[in-house]
Design a protein around this nucleic acid. Structure first.
Lengths: 240, 240
DNA sequence: AAGTGGTCTAGACCACGTA
DNA sequence: ACGTGGTCTAGACCACTTG
């Protein structure tokens, strides 16, 4: 186990593990081989394997469970909630809104979509529009765009069959695991349509969140534009 | 070096180091004793000390420099920028606005301030109001509240003497190091005064950021309420 | 009891910064 | 040349999970 000199061994092992995950040799939720086995196979010491694994754990890619094994993280609801969902109520508690898809279509991408999702010319996209409600009040309007090439099968679904927690769904149905996201947040005024759906006055101020979600290897997968009524809820960000 | 059974050694060492930092036995910017010396003094192995230190490095409390030593992080401009400043331009580049203090006063706290800053009854606060400009256009209005007890000396400053990068200033002049912050973001409409200062129409949508900044041991130090014009700038949040 | 990850040790050698 | 952190090894024992 020595491909490249001058690159630390544990980094090489780290990359090797990432590769196996990206190539789906090991799938989300599964355990990877034990430390001792990896060390033996790769002909390095246990400590070196540990260091590679620890690095991936701190990057939210692996999960270690004493006595059980080391697992590839899945997009279970817990993770989705704690890493990708930022809306809290006035007490600072995270609240999961209920979703309702209002339209599911395929169409040509906008310029923004081509750029953000790095689409090829002539590539199409799938567009989901949905509302997200808390206690029968619509809080968020989401406009979600996905590359047609990867998500074609999605169109076979009835719009009512699309689940609330999309990242889990992407993983289970399309083998796409969202790993990171960039968000840009600004403020805008509710349009006439927004106002009607959200039951607020026209020109009510809304949060506008533009999120680009990516896989482990940095490929952009989903562009999500959200408008959010922050009368009773906030976007929460804690900086460490 | 064994105070408590059943608590891992490296955790005990970690806590010990944090204590030294909190008690100002070692100051920000200084190097802590070398690994070998710590290991010797504490009568543990080098690897154990390393593990304690690594944990603090990943928590943004220490900084290791090969060949030089391990240093306590300071609030230099780089850190302030990368951890506590989220405003980017349309190209996603961080931009530091220039600040101008419009008022520096002492007064009784509001209810919100008492609660957030955990103030004692009858405690006073110091209040700073400032504008933040980029290219001669005011982008942000900041309202900053500090506990009077800690920051009394601040009042001796002329309002023009207060520097742009406050967290660095708190550290150097008051021995207070900001380590983490909680932010709640919402949208609101510009008031008549806001609109005038920011040169936008009345009822222009603004981002409203409520930030509570804390020290290493979790004591709330600063409440900062910011209104931000997001016509040309965004609040950036990247989730890993 | 066997297998997993978690802690801890003792020591080697390397890479970097400073004098 | 010396001291610092960075990598790597080989092995011990502990704590947790499962059969």
């Amino acid at each position: 186990m020595l491909f490249e000199r001058s690159i630390p061994l544990y980094i090489q092992i780290r990359e090797l593990l990432i590769d196996k995950i990206n190539k789906k040799e090991w799938l989300p939720g599964e355990a990877i081989p034990s430390e001792t086995i990896l060390a033996k196979n790769l002909n390095v010491s246990l400590g070196t394997v540990r260091k590679a694994i620890e690095s991936l754990v701190s990057n939210n890619i692996l999960d270690r469970k004493q006595g059980k094994g080391t697992f590839i993280k899945t997009h279970d609801i817990h993770r989705a909630l704690f890493h990708f969902f930022h809306i809290v109520n006035k007490n600072g508690e995270k609240v999961i809104p209920h979703s309702k898809v209002t339209s599911l279509t395929e169409r040509a991408p906008t310029k923004q979509e081509v750029k953000k999702l790095q689409l090829k010319t002539n590539a199409k996209v799938i567009n989901i529009v949905r509302t997200r409600d808390i206690e029968d009040k619509t809080i968020i309007l989401e406009n979600i765009t996905l590359p047609h090439a990867i998500f074609v099968q999605l169109l076979k679904n009835n719009k009512n069959e699309i689940p609330n927690t999309l990242y889990e769904f992407y993983e289970n149905s399309f083998g796409v695991t969202i790993h990171s996201a960039k968000e840009r947040i600004s403020a805008l005024l509710a349009s006439k349509e927004d106002a009607k759906i959200m039951d607020v006055p026209e020109s009510h101020p809304l949060l506008y969140i533009e999120r680009l979600a990516q896989t482990l290897d940095g490929k952009p997968i989903e562009l999500r534009l959200s408008k959010c009524n922050t009368e009773n809820y906030y976007y929460d960000n804690t900086v460490l």
